[in-house]
Write a protein that binds this DNA or RNA. Sequence first.
DNA 1: ATCCGGATAGTTTTT
DNA 2: CTATCCGGAT
Length: 684
Amino acid sequence: MSNTLNPAQREAIRYRDGPCLVIAGAGSGKTRVITQKIAALVGAGHAPESIAAITFTNKAAREMESRLGSLIKLESRARPTVCTFHSLGMQILRAEGESAGLKRNFSILDADDSLGIITQALGTTDRKAARAVQHTISLWKNAMVDPDAAIGTQGSAAPGVAANIAAANIATAHAYRDYAATLAAYQAVDFDDLILRPVQLLRDHPEALARWRGKLRYLLVDEYQDTNATQYELLKLLVGPRAAFTAVGDDDQSIYGWRGATLENLRRLQTDYPELKVIKLEQNYRSSNTILGVANALIGKNPKLHEKKLWSAHGVGDPVTVVACEDDEKEAESIVMRISAARFERQAKWSDFAVLYRGNHQARVIEQTLRKEKIDYVLSGGQSFFERTEIRDLLAYLRLIANDDDDPAFIRAVTTPKRGIGTTTLQALGEYAGQRHVSMFAALFETGAQTRLGPRQLEPLQRFGEFINRIAWRAAREPAGQVIDDLVRAIDYREHLFGLHDDKTATQRWQYVEDFTGWIRRRAEEDGSTLLQQAQAISLLSQLDRDNDDVDAVRLTTIHAAKGLEFPHVFVVGCEEGILPHRGSIDDDEGDPPDADAISARIEEERRLMYVAVTRAQRTLTLSWCQARRRAKEKLGCTPSRFIEEMGLSPSTAGRTTVTGDAARERLGRLKAMLVKPAPLAEK
DNA sequence: ATCCGGATAGTTTTT
DNA sequence: CTATCCGGAT
């Protein structure tokens, strides 16, 4: 990337007088624009702490913070806020939530907890159905539809409510109402609430709104095309009539429609802020022109909101390769061999290579093959550290310590490790608590509990309750590292693990626990936070900051998780109809009238997903597809993705496209043989 | 309360 | 083929 800014970037940075939309094509240096603009704002006299940059992921926030740190040096007391939407929402809610009946120590439920509650509300055992309902509820929340409205609008298409949401049945709407009531009882919020509730709160409490408008005087929003209706509302509220903000986004990279993100927000920006200044960044600093060529050809098939044409000062570069494979195992073999060969030929590092796929399960075959070849890899996405059973067990304790109304945390903590308290006991306690309208934890200490539970059940429960109270007292005062260690020891968690698993697995899992407690200790030492404070923010984190990006390993990632990243050599696997585009986007699952518009909208999003995938590549791009793929039992024929043709590529060019793993292995063998002789490998 | 076996389903992306 | 779920036994 060049050191000087191009004219469009300069303009985007210099323009500070009003609302600003930066249409930033892939690889056009948008993070640079955001960080430089923050620096420029500070230079122009803005107090750093009155500036906020909002991202979608923690990783993006961290990246931005570090880039900012190398750009300007700031007092630790006067730093811009750089955080995710959800983290900002949490801060607002922690500060102001009490005026909306939410205590300061509210819990944040992850997707698993919320799924459990929804399953109960539905009275079903069907996990798939529960997931569908969970998703619909999420869409409702992201479109700012409350439970009453959801129940009321059944059948009638309310304005502003997408058809797929309105089509959900009445049972789902009732589950939504029950779910919301349950969360309220637990003093808990889910991820969507972290945006929705601040919006409601700021709307209903003018003095709170004034406070936050005074606090945040300039907003910058990254990945603006991924915002949903609720996030738009939050921005609009915070920004107010001053409209001091910069939104940076790319309509061609909008890939979160399924999560409620809507490109409508890009249009609304222009109608809500007629004076909006729109700046386009069209120079790409990442890819060869060949790669940009196929990317442009592909995205050209989509209707455009903001016409733009990416160009690059880099050369023509290598041709894009399409590989047809027999099945997914052969595909993995072929990819891995190509990576080995290319690393050798180009004197590249393992970390120069990335394998991108549509769904997490596709990583498996690739992993196996890489392991077989003893090649290091890092897997991003998939199960995160904080979703591991061990970590969730401990998090339940932390959540309970912070908020004793959190019944799900109570149930998990009290039963893990086993202390002779079973479902029957908990059910009785839960019923009693329900009648008394108190949390299960509070119910333990009510004298009435004795009428429902015998002393044999009540005694261990109360001992547990007193233990939690003692730890909670310390968690608010003593160093976090000490308290967490004592907690883990007091509950005999190590013994629990070794009793549950064989030595090898147990050792591994115990290692995760130590990673976790060590991480808590370090964080506490860095910023002096108590365990209580940390317990409140952890649910928003998806990975430990120690998982190094600087290891030399092949990167395996979903396309979604790859957004914002770049690699010299990119492999996109599974370029088949039914995978990319995904089958769920091709055939409509429930829309009674075959809704052609909805289908083409989903195909467009899949096309953008492919666009995101190919624009990650700097130097080489390899697309592969399988002729057959075994599903449940039988092998099923596959056809190449329509996107291959749309990019002007041939899915099976004669000759070298059908290179199998064997052929690539042979080539690698030849290359290695050359190394023995003093042969110069003069390959470009 | 936990463990083990057999049966069965498995369609996508994430804060 | 594999992960998860359910039911039975201990």
